[in-house]
Design a protein around this nucleic acid. Structure first.
Lengths: 248, 248
DNA sequence: GGCGGCCCGATTGTCGGACAATCGTATCAT
DNA sequence: ATGATACGATTGTCCGACAATCGGGCCGCC
């Protein structure tokens, strides 16, 4: 048996241009904040038409590698931010018809260790953000949109306090999906707000006391409570998660 | 105090076109596999120039929402696949100068529960893939590239057996980064291959026996062993993870 | 000397048209 | 039916053009 021939791949110019620029960014030859050369110059450097350059730029833009800052003209090199990447992953998961159960199950796995990490972390400033998130949730009152946002902010703050950027980024799409499911659930469950607030306070207290064990177990209870919430609201856990809205 | 005015945002046409098409895909009005209308028709429908449509298409293409299948001309609607999304996230993490420690720490958190899930899963077919991955790793011998690939394949197979697509997708970028770090490490640590193979066999045995507890603990040992490997290889855990290559 | 307003070149967003390569398909011959 | 051929449709790439506006320099004024 001979090794099969690889399919001979033709790449259109716009993609090769995009790949060439992306490679420079990855190699740090083009760095964060640096302005990109104007389209006409890129066109003459690559010896292609400006239209081709523009198509390549759209690709890079959509990857979050370049962006044009608000009210400015030249594009600048940038590193894809957490929000940008998370949005993509969230959309992808929603399109895969992922169920609420799968999202929730993942949260039960990821969040408790995150709380534990945060409890062990040394810096105080991270805790300040957690405290602010807890207060903001209680202050959100009957404003559904705000309450849901603040639930996410709480998890984000805890993750940030933990100091692991990989975990924080991994968590981000989960929060997007949780929030979009939560928007439907929270107003159907009268006691939801009180239970969330109570759990958040307990977790905060554990973090302040550097009690990793308590932080972990309470975070687990907190996440489990969401499952209870969906059940009480009559939402089948095996329905697919609602598509995350465009609000960012 | 009055509420501050929101920045008045102008969106260029190509982005609004892309958003309009993306919305239809998200709403399932355009479904997986369906061919997109030709560019000229899209141009006349949106009443914009074909160049504008093409820029929008590059954006959608880069999001994995449309693709042109090999050797064909029309573009078809598609759902962003795991590999596609994972690549993006992997690049983003690498650009954020994430450290090997952060990746490894995340693996210690994510993988053991994944093994536990796989052990509890009812279907046998998933196990077949795990068995194949274990065999393939041992068969890879001194071929570094293949060995590294098979390490990833093992984790992927376990995750698939667990049946949680969210976890599987979350794991994917981690594997990309682990692999790119592993490529440097594995040949510097003589006993690495043997230890990996041994751990994989133990985990496989536990999965076959439906022993969730053993699967979890051995998976934890397996992941911890990678850390040991980096230390033995003299690789500082706090260096940033090498950028994942273009191989897919 | 610092500050605000004005003007001009540079750059981007969008348009129109053009053409070669090639993919899909209908037609035709065997 | 099967295989070869021819034609229209579609994409990739190019060229040129123009309005809007951003950035920066220049100037006058306090």
């Amino acid at each position: 048996m001979s090794t099969p021939f690889p399919p001979l791949a033709y790449e259109p110019s716009y993609r090769r241009v995009a790949a060439a620029i992306a490679a420079r960014i990855h190699a740090r030859a083009l760095r964060d904040g640096e302005p990109l050369p104007p389209e006409t110059e890129l066109a003459s450097q690559f010896a292609v038409n400006r239209s081709t350059i523009r198509e390549a730029l759209r690709e890079l833009e959509s990857e979050g590698l370049v962006e044009r800052r608000r009210g400015t003209k030249r594009m600048v090199v940038t590193r894809p931010g957490a929000g940008h990447v998370a949005g993509r992953v969230g959309h992808a998961l929603a399109l895969q018809d992922v169920t609420i159960r799968e999202v929730w199950e993942t949260l039960t796995i990821v969040e408790p260790p995150l709380a534990e990490l945060a409890a062990r972390a040394r810096q105080a400033p991270g805790l300040e953000a957690v405290r602010a998130a807890v207060d903001a949730f209680e202050a959100s009152g009957a404003d559904t949109a705000r309450a849901v946002d603040e639930v996410g902010a709480f998890f984000r703050a805890v993750a940030s306090a933990g100091g692991n950027r990989v975990l924080r980024l991994a968590q981000e799409p989960l929060l997007l999906l949780l929030q979009s499911a939560l928007r439907v659930m929270i107003d159907r469950v009268p006691q939801a707000r009180a239970r969330i607030a109570s759990a958040q306070r307990r977790i905060l207290a554990a973090l302040e006391a550097r009690d990793a064990e308590t932080a972990r177990t309470w975070m687990l209870k907190h996440v489990r409570d969401f499952r209870r919430g969906f059940e009480v609201a009559g939402i089948d856990l095996d329905t697919r998660v609602p598509h995350p809205g465009e609000a960012q």
